[in-house]
Write a protein that binds this DNA or RNA. Structure first.
Lengths: 306, 306
DNA sequence: ACCAATTGTGGACTTAATATCCACCAATTG
DNA sequence: CAATTGGTGGATATTAAGTCCACAATTGGT
């Protein structure tokens, strides 16, 4: 975002300078930094020369900041402070990641897409244990129930949650060839009223479908022949020829490729729904959780969740 | 003030890291930093190794910050920004200081004490010209009248002025031997009522004297036989035997040492008055002014203004 | 008032960090 | 499918930084 002007010419000497001011003497500063006083002196000389001003007035017994030194010190000290704080917050990955991470996922997407990836990322760390729960409830406050949640669609925006987008999924409306032969292929959204539709339940996958008409995204309520609380079962039901369903493309792709399901109303689908990863905002996240987050982000970047 | 925890282990690699994130690629960052991409890569590897976490996910074509990298970058970028800003504010002393600096000083103190020092500090810089004006007015708003003012006593606290203490001066009450022989030596503060006193004027040196009684500092108004607007003339008048005066010790020392003036009421004097240097707060002070400030502070530190 | 201790400086040398140069691999693009 | 672009890694070179002295200056103790 910002240009390159935000990078100082060099940072060498700054540590020494701040240390000296804080210590009040070259000798003590040198001790704290674990170098000789000579080294400290030269560092500061170099810094002063680079900046073109004197920073410290040295009178053998007492150190005093010059006019410029004062201002420069204020800036540097608080800057270093900030960096030190950031470094302190970083808990290095243990050589061995250990412990348990609980991930809560949508039923179908979780089993089909995420589960193999999670097993793969955990494999190199024998002491890393995973708890994977499958849950299609759109709202899950994960009160100590999970470390990580993956959710489709719009998010409950609460300030104590962190959300990261993993991918965008297209939702498709489709039905089995047998069903479409028997009931006809819908050509417009209003045609849906003559169809059998398989939808979710109140606390499970959405009961409404998201579609677009001439670029406008809208939600419609199709005639709900069957209601199911489990996304995977919805697909199964559609496969068995009991009606149309709208589901993320990742759950349908293999079936479509093998001709067991046929997309319909393609002009009205193509609406993207985001997949997010959520976790509770906290000062320091356990390394094992950070690891899982990072790896999932890496998979997402590679398009493995598409 | 603060401990040594405020200094990060090392700053090396941080510039490179921030540059890479801002540039969005190793190659572009390397170009901006004026080094090879290899160097940048290694810098960041070292940094990651030191911190024990990966900061960047490198996928050959696209860079992405890791969880830790994100947090670390925020801290580092704003820290470097602050340092860069501080460095930008520093105008290096020109090799040759040039221009004019106007210093306004108390009459007597300025002529006796400051003038030689100012001439001395200006000597190495042939192109540095000084304007020195002498003024005993206690309040001087120096509206473009001077770059620097030196003042005794309490300050007009205005937020757009910067004040730096140069020294503490003792004020002594004294009279000439002749006067004291004629009028007697005062032994208590109340004795002053029977004496002839030489004081300042409303817009010149103080009309009141500052004394202490059993540790309490108080201001008294002595019977003002003569009023003079010029501190130096006050001393002259006392020397001539016309009464007692209270003046800073630096203006009296030589006279006392030579026996031309004798301190009285020593138990009640010894009240310190601070000497301050004042200038108008501004973002960037001209180097020549900063130089004069710094040098005067240096003299003060050495006790040359005592 | 002096001696001793402490503190910053500077020069010659040494060490260690860091950059370069090159070849290589991986991913994208026309 | 070459050609181009972007990151990595090893061997080598270079430069930056630190050490180790001896020294000068200042101060505190007795």
């Amino acid at each position: 975002m910002a240009g390159q002007h935000t990078i100082p010419e060099s940072l060498s000497g700054i540590s020494a300078f701040v240390a000296v001011v804080q210590a009040g003497s070259f000798t003590l500063a040198a001790e704290r930094l674990g170098v000789t006083k000579s080294a400290v002196g030269k560092s500061i000389n170099r810094l002063e020369e680079r900046l073109g001003v004197k920073l410290l007035r040295r009178t053998t017994r007492r150190l005093q900041l010059t006019f410029d030194g004062e201002a420069y010190f204020q800036a540097c000290a608080s800057a270093l402070d900030k960096i030190a704080e950031a470094e302190a917050q970083i808990t290095p990955y243990d050589q061995v990641l250990r412990g348990r991470v609980h991930i809560d996922m949508p039923m179908a997407f979780g089993k089909r897409v995420l589960l193999p990836l999670l097993l793969e990322l955990a494999a190199p760390h024998p002491e890393l244990a995973l708890t994977m729960s499958f849950n299609d409830a759109t709202v899950d406050l994960m009160r100590d129930e999970a470390d990580l949640a993956i959710r489709f669609g719009q998010l409950p925006d609460s300030s104590h949650l962190v959300a990261r987008k993993l991918a965008s999924q297209e939702r498709l409306i489709c039905g089995s060839p047998g069903y479409l032969q028997a009931h006809g292929v819908p050509m417009s959204l209003s045609d849906l009223n003559g169809h059998r539709c398989i939808v979710g339940t109140t606390h499970g996958p959405p009961q409404q479908w998201t579609v677009q008409e001439r670029g406008h995204v809208m939600r419609i309520t199709p005639p709900a022949t069957h209601q199911l609380s489990d996304g995977e079962s919805i697909v199964e039901t559609a496969l068995a020829g009991f009606g149309l369903c709208q589901m993320p493309v990742s759950l349908l792709r293999s079936h479509i490729e093998q001709g067991r399901l046929v997309p319909v109303l393609q002009a009205h689908s193509g609406v993207l729904v985001d997949v997010h990863m959520l976790w509770v905002r906290q000062a320091t996240l356990a390394p094992r959780i950070r690891y899982v987050i990072d790896q999932l982000m890496a998979y997402a970047e590679r398009g493995a969740l598409g």
